[in-house]
Design a protein around this nucleic acid. Structure first.
Length: 414
DNA sequence: AGGTATTCACATGAAACTATTCTCTGAGTTAGG
DNA sequence: TAACTCAGAGAATAGTTTCATGTGAATACCTGT
């Protein structure tokens, strides 16, 4: 029997998973623990729609992984069910996630997506925006549903990319189509974006507001336990592992999504290693792996100029490390990297690869962006007489720098 | 010693420029009447 | 003839550069003891 056969044959018995989907982030469980209150609130606000009355616009706020989307989708399903049963109460709910670029980068695309979800058709390009808008209105009009609930996940993206005027127009649909009732549900993980919005939009969008607090470690543990029971076969998860998983996620502002991710990856790791039980060790490994994957993903998708800057930083760090170990007795002012150094190395790198050279001004901004992404740390420090600059340090785990270098050199063609 | 003034090496902002992407208009095409 | 499609003009946008101004504290320079 070949090696491959062995692997393929054993896959059935060997797996720790009973149902992996349970840990996938788009899975929606029957019950949503610790969110009863929020569900009730949302339901109370939305209920009038079932009997054909206008409901208030709703704004839902909470950090990532606090169950906002889950709760709203849950209610959406329930209402849709009711709407279908209770004859003659035509209700239509539309869910759009504005996070995806393809869906909602421009006003045009967002409207097109809305029309598509409502069952209309529209050509992908070539029409003026106001015509698309009209088409949207006429699509609404042509449907026999009376009540529409438009759910906009991550609305902050819309405001950022399109401006709040669009939202204002949406809230004003009711005035233009007297026979239809349109309610908007906005979901966001950033409350601050409400502040710099046109007050008219602000007040009409957030007629009702619901806040989703982050889960604490205990709650996370409970959620994880429930899901783990469904996802894994019996006795395949160490109880300490669950606790550790919850603790990790609780540090990250109670992000349940991350906790589930962690558990799933840990399961995969354990399975691949042929272990019978998921232990805290696997959770640690999973944590490291997720972090690694995140970094690699960022590095890979970043444009060339950014990659070059990062490579410059890595190279500098390595050469400074060497220097430090050679004359380790000399003062401690050794392995520190500043903006100027990076920009010099970056420049020579550009010359080598024949790339265009960006100004130091821009390089500084790029460094700041890497800082924001958490790949490097670059606080500004003042060195008194010797100026003021960013003190740069790579945050890429030691075992990963080689891999990162490889990716960049390949992509730059060195 | 204690206080003020300099000075460095960029940070940070704003405006101007450019290349790319979007939006829109009108001509051409299609299809149904 | 209405509806649709598409190319290309013009507008909007994102990424950069250029120019200008700002900054924090280690040092240099006083000042009076």
């Amino acid at each position: 029997m070949s090696n491959l056969d062995k692997i393929f044959n054993s896959i059935g018995q060997r797996t720790l998973f009973k149902n992996k989907d349970v840990l996938q982030m788009d899975y929606s469980p029957e019950t949503i623990p610790f969110r009863e209150k929020q569900i009730e609130q949302v339901a109370l606000i939305m209920a009038p729609a079932l009997i054909g009355q206008k409901t208030s616009n709703l704004f839902v706020y909470g950090k990532t992984g606090t169950g906002k989307t889950l709760v709203i989708k849950h209610i959406q399903n329930e209402m849709q069910k009711r709407g279908a049963e209770g004859s003659g109460k035509p209700l239509k709910l539309v869910y759009i996630n504005c996070k995806f670029k393809k869906v909602a980068d421009t006003e045009y695309r967002l409207l097109a997506e809305l029309i598509k979800k409502l069952g209309g058709t529209i050509s992908a390009t070539g029409l003026p925006t106001d015509q698309v808008y009209n088409k949207f209105l006429s699509t609404l009009e042509s449907l026999d549903n009376k009540i529409f609930v438009i759910i906009l996940d991550e609305v902050d993206q819309i405001v950022k990319k399109i401006s709040d005027e669009f939202l204002y127009n949406l809230t004003r649909i009711n005035a233009e189509l007297p026979k239809k009732l349109v309610t908007i549900v906005g979901i966001s993980n950033d409350v601050r974006f409400l502040d710099d919005m046109d007050p008219r939009v602000k007040s009409s969008l957030s007629e009702e507001e619901i806040v989703f607090p982050p889960y604490d470690a205990l709650q996370l543990k409970d959620i994880l336990l429930k899901r783990a029971n469904e996802a894994f076969k019996e006795n395949s998860v160490d109880s300490g592992a669950i606790a550790k998983c919850a603790a990790f996620a609780a540090q990250e502002h109670g992000d349940a999504r991350r906790a589930l991710d962690l558990l799933r990856v840990a399961g995969e790791i354990a399975e691949r290693a042929g272990d019978k039980k998921i232990t805290t060790m696997h959770i640690d490994e999973a944590n490291a792996k997720i972090e690694r994957d995140k970094i690699l993903d960022i590095v890979q998708t970043e444009p060339n100029q950014f990659q070059a800057v990062l490579l410059a930083i890595i190279n500098l760090e390595e050469s400074k490390d060497k220097l430090k170990s050679q004359k380790s007795l000399i003062a401690d002012e050794g392995g520190k990297i500043y903006t100027g150094d990076v920009s010099k190395v970056y420049e020579s790198l550009c010359k080598k690869t024949g790339m265009e050279i960006l100004t130091q001004r821009r390089v500084g901004d790029i460094i700041s962006e890497f800082d924001m992404l958490g790949i490097i740390s670059a606080p500004v420090v003042s060195k008194g007489r010797y100026g003021r600059t960013k003190e740069i340090k790579s945050l890429i785990p030691a075992g990963l720098t080689e891999k990162v270098k490889e990716i960049i050199t390949k992509s730059l063609g060195i």
